[in-house]
Design a protein around this nucleic acid. Sequence first.
DNA 1: ATGGTCGCGCAGCGA
Length: 259
Amino acid sequence: MRIATWNVNSLKARMDRVEEWIGYAEPDVLCMQETKMTDKAFPAMAFSAMGYDSVHHGEGRWNGVAILSRVGIDDVVSGFAAGIEPDRDARLLTATCGGIRVMTVYVPNGREVGHEHYHYKLDWMRRLREHLDAAATPTDEVLVCGDFNIAPDDRDVWDPAACNGGTHVSEPERAALARVVDWGLEDVFRRQYQADRLYTWWDYRAGMFHKHMGMRIDLMYASASLADRLDWTLIDRNARKGVQPSDHAPLVGSFQERL
DNA sequence: ATGGTCGCGCAGCGA
């Protein structure tokens, strides 16, 4: 079972790259963020022709998340579970694919520490934990992946000193992430790579990608029983190269078959 | 040292 997460930064602008990538990466499940389109505009037929069922939760110009699956999509929940203050944006989608409760998340960008959007981000993370409590059980196979806009620790940024005090690395953001992880999740990339400084996002500007100046903010978390089946993970830097790339690279996790 | 680019949509904002 191969599961991927990719912030595509507009599916309309990225469709050729996404189709190319699916063609060679052959994920069983692909979670996307920042599709930036309405549900009506979502190219479900094109994905169907490639063998994937899909579900999309979009709004238009901003945000938007999707799950593609060739192992089934059931019990879909758009946004936070019932009983939680609804999200004003399209940032979360939950579905069961091949026996795994999959969640694709696009965590708000906080803009600046202390900004109104920063507080919205922290509150959004609080609600994500409530969503986990309501929509899943830690003993089940659960996978939470997406663009968290938070670097979990200083290994996850190219220069901790330069990033110090900024958004993505602030202590309250990391604490909010830890609170979500505390539900019963493990960072599968870090399960495989402990010291490695590998990133998933690089600013388009200033040749940041070529200078290896990025952040690891696209994350894949698995519940214990699923994490125990982890075979390997990969950040596909090739997808960040070439013609009209997203500013994020896909992150792939491969899980062994259930015994 | 600083700033450097995209996408959306048609100016300038958001990331």
